[in-house]
Design a protein around this nucleic acid. Structure first.
Lengths: 96, 96
DNA sequence: TTAACATATGAACAACTATTCATATGTACA
DNA sequence: TGTACATATGAATAGTTGTTCATATGTTAA
């Protein structure tokens, strides 16, 4: 494997930490094929709006999702294809 | 993205949780090109033998690493190429 | 402007986790 | 068998984190 410095490894751990929570993974999966508003995510996961909003903030800070306003709602979606790739790569290990 | 059930998402989060710790990521990186014994990992990371041993146990339970005895030492190495793939995929996102 | 709706945020608490310390287990060699 | 070496493990602790509750911010339409 190519050379990776300490800071990069630290950032990498931080990234995986974000994926390492079932609420956040479920949110990312919900967003994998379409953009959704906060309340819809909360309802579909059976969680409070506040809990979801807190997690969306973490996901956005990690640049895994993006958002845009649409009237009163805010629609969230995946930031780019890396997210799908990381999830798919993880699934290959889980499915053994 | 293809259909994934709740249990699979839960397992996926558990997997990423293991990657989501800088000590464990650094261990995995150390093991990425050769097998190493416990004390050598501890020395190279500047941590105690006990701390490393605890983390190795977690990594092994997640089937990310394997081990074999060599005399008094136990040599650890990556379980398979999935580990490298997952790390590389994560790096692509971190390096932006 | 006011009411209703949608989302964000801060504080507090409970649950979880990584490390430390002390010690146990296992191996090799004299 | 006894000693030194290498690793594993259990309990305790300190630090971290996800959720809840209450409330603030922002938007729309009457």
């Amino acid at each position: 494997m190519r050379k990776i410095d300490e800071n990069e490894l630290f950032d990498l751990a931080e990234l995986f930490k974000v994926f390492g929570d079932s609420t956040r993974i479920r949110i990312l999966y919900k967003l994998s094929d379409k953009e959704i508003c906060v309340q819809e995510i909360a309802d579909s996961l059976g969680m409070t709006q506040s809990a979801i909003s807190h997690q969306l903030k973490i996901l956005k800070q990690s640049k895994l999702i993006k958002s845009r306003r649409d009237g009163k709602s805010i629609l969230y979606s995946l930031a780019d294809d890396h997210v799908r790739s990381i999830i798919n790569q993880g699934l290959e290990h889980v499915e053994e």
